[in-house]
């Protein structure tokens, strides 16, 4: 199982728009909520009401300040499994518990096989694997595999929980292996990037970088204002306008 498929039929994944994400945590809690009763249930919380609270989460949102010569900006950064094409998290797994699906490219853990050696979490550069100390197995984002094909929920709801919830529409979902898919086009249009490309994991998920300020449609080409040049100044101008 832990040998990677030579290729997958689809490359399902997420695209996250850092230009739009406001860091609201909706994707974080909606993910927790769906998944704690879902395929990898439960997402255990230890000391949930105490000082050392520590739970299993598949998606976590960081906040950064990015300072360049052009100025500074605050960037909210959701982080979850990127469903990499050549992920060592899978190949290091000694038991076959970790695997990449041939059909859709989703990287999953088979909890029944997992011995909890944690090696996959060491092998994931992105910190996408979460160990559940209570049950002693590794858990991770399932790309909501129990939602996206689920015949028991409304067809329109068959997208990852985090994508459905995101109030700013900063999250996208689809087949990144199909260059014609809407999501691939979005990535192309917006110059989506890989995280840590130098490590060679070839993440499927892409991040859309915040648009440089000058490239945004948002710059308004406004000429500087000039005081009205009419006798009587502004009030004179008003009179003139009204009698025109």
């Amino acid at each position: 199982m832990t040998c990677l498929p030579a290729s997958t039929e689809k490359k399902l994944g997420l695209v996250i728009d850092l230009d739009t994400c406001v860091g609201c945590q909706a994707c974080v809690t909606s993910c927790k909520e769906w998944n704690t009763g879902g395929h990898m249930a439960p997402l255990t919380d230890i000391d949930p009401y105490g000082g050392q609270v520590d739970g299993v989460w598949f998606n976590r949102v960081h906040a950064y300040e990015h300072t360049t010569e052009a100025g500074g900006r605050t960037v909210h950064f959701p982080r979850s499994c990127l469903h990499c094409e050549t992920p060592a998290c899978v190949t290091v797994c000694p038991t076959g518990a970790s695997y990449k699906r041939t059909s859709d490219g989703i990287v999953l853990v088979d909890e029944d096989k997992c011995i909890g050696c944690k090696l996959c979490s060491w092998a994931c550069p992105y910190g996408a694997r979460e160990f559940d100390t209570d049950v002693g197995v590794m858990k991770k984002c399932t790309l909501c595999v129990d939602r996206i094909y689920n015949d028991n929920i409304a067809p329109e709801d068959r997208v990852p929980a985090c994508v459905a919830a995101c109030p700013t529409s900063a999250r996208h979902f689809g087949d990144l292996g199909d260059p014609d898919s809407a999501i691939s086009q979005l990535v192309a249009e917006r110059g989506g990037v890989d995280l840590m490309p130098e490590l060679g994991y070839r993440p499927t998920n892409k991040y859309l970088p915040p648009r440089a300020r000058t490239e945004r449609a948002a710059t308004v080409p406004a000429p500087a204002l000039e005081a009205v040049k009419v006798e009587g100044g502004f009030l004179g101008w008003v009179d003139r306008m009204l009698s025109a």
Partner: peptide
């Protein structure tokens, strides 16, 4: 609200992956 083409369901049945995952709980 989230209905951009890049946010829609795949609209396909679960593939026959054979990994025993219950895709329609």
């Amino acid at each position: 609200a989230n209905s951009a083409p890049s946010q829609r369901p795949l609209g396909v049945a679960a593939p026959a992956e054979g990994d025993g995952v219950e895709t329609s709980p």
